[in-house]
Amino acid sequence: MPVPRARQITLSAAERRRLKQLAYSHTAPYQQVIRVRIVLDAAHGYSNAKISRRRKVTVDTVRLWRGRFAGEGMKGLADRPRSGRPPKFTPVQIAEIKALACQLPAETGVPLSRWSCPDLAAETVARGIAPAISASTVRRILATDAIKPWQYQSWIFIRDPDFAAKAGRVLNLYARIWDGAALDDDEYVISADEKTSIQARCRCHPTLPPGKSRMMRVNHDYKRGGALAYLAAYDVHRAHVMGRCSPKTGIVPFTELVDQVMTAEPYASAKRVFWIVDNGSSHRGKAAADRLATRYPNAVMVHTPVHGSWINQIEIFFSIVQRKVVSPNDFTSLDQVEDRLIAFERRYNETARPFRWKFTPADLEDLLARIERHEQKEFDSQQHDHCEQQPDVLDVAA
């Protein structure tokens, strides 16, 4: 019986260049590198036996990849599609596992607040959905639909009936508009609030700086050194912060912050200064607005809606303070906390630029419209469920 001749390999300049790049690649899969080197050796005229000795593979392996390249080119060096291991769980079982993950554990009689993959695996076996299943398999099943029951996100209803009007006033002030007219150059917008309960935690062992292959180390044990409040006013368009520290919050500390701002230029001689505040007890309601207007006739207090503090830009600055100044908390005394806050305030004002506020009145309208559609959908669903639960009048009469 005649021995089959080895397939002849002839490479173009482009193919040779591509194959050489793969042959000496440090990132390509090792199997692909071996296949490419077999093809290059074959193009040099080496026999299958010699290539087998050079690449330390069997002659059958050389014959396989040499023949595939001769017949299909570069595509022939890829693996053929494989059926893989047969599925261990049926589509019905997978659907039941996903349905279980989409239920609150308490509603199923399980005393948990949320599911974890080990809990779901144990519950799957307990319910007889599958005789056995691992937590990693449950995680892979849920990953196909991006279901993560161990995560949660909080939300809150809009309870303020004048939410749209109040939020619209604030957003218009950010765009330098009040009552439909543009603000003058001598009119300013201030965003103010308090950051409460900033503690002085003196660590029992000093914090160690980062080093080679080592992150900063903060001792877990600490002694409490008290707490203070940081009151700040942020000029929205000038990106300038004015703040002070106080042992506690209240009307008097907030009034001191107002005095600090309104007695300084350019606010003392300004035509109008708009103060955007939330509904905290220090500046809540019409009484606070009247108190401010009586003390400074050129000051106008503008309240955010209830549960609408997220549209107050001072909260962005407070988040910066939390990340860059307060955390990790390691202060020997409240005086050190105050000095650090005031020093950071000066440092921030040297390079600060206005926040790129992107939430516009048009975005507010879209948000409220989506909420309205969602509430209507929920209402229709409840009405439908209620009608299904009511007995048919004709059936009762019969």
Rank of each mutant, 00 (worst) to 15 (best):
M1H: 14
V3N: 02
V3P: 05
P4M: 02
P4D: 08
A6Q: 13
R7P: 02
L19C: 13
K20I: 00
I38K: 09
D41H: 12
A42K: 11
A42P: 05
A49T: 00
K50V: 10
R54V: 02
T58E: 10
T61D: 01
T61W: 07
G73W: 05
M74W: 15
T90K: 10
L100G: 13
G109M: 10
C117F: 10
D119K: 15
A121G: 03
A126N: 10
S134W: 11
S136H: 14
D145C: 02
S154A: 14
I190R: 14
S197M: 02
S197P: 00
T207C: 02
R214H: 12
D221Y: 06
K223Q: 12
V236A: 09
M242C: 11
I251S: 06
V258P: 04
V277I: 12
R284Y: 14
K286R: 12
T294W: 02
R295P: 04
Y296C: 05
N298R: 15
N298E: 08
V300H: 12
V306A: 15
F317T: 07
S319W: 00
R323S: 12
V325Y: 09
V326C: 04
D330A: 15
V337R: 12
D339G: 10
F344C: 01
R347M: 15
R353F: 03
R356W: 08
P361E: 07
E365I: 03
H374N: 09
E378N: 10
V393F: 10
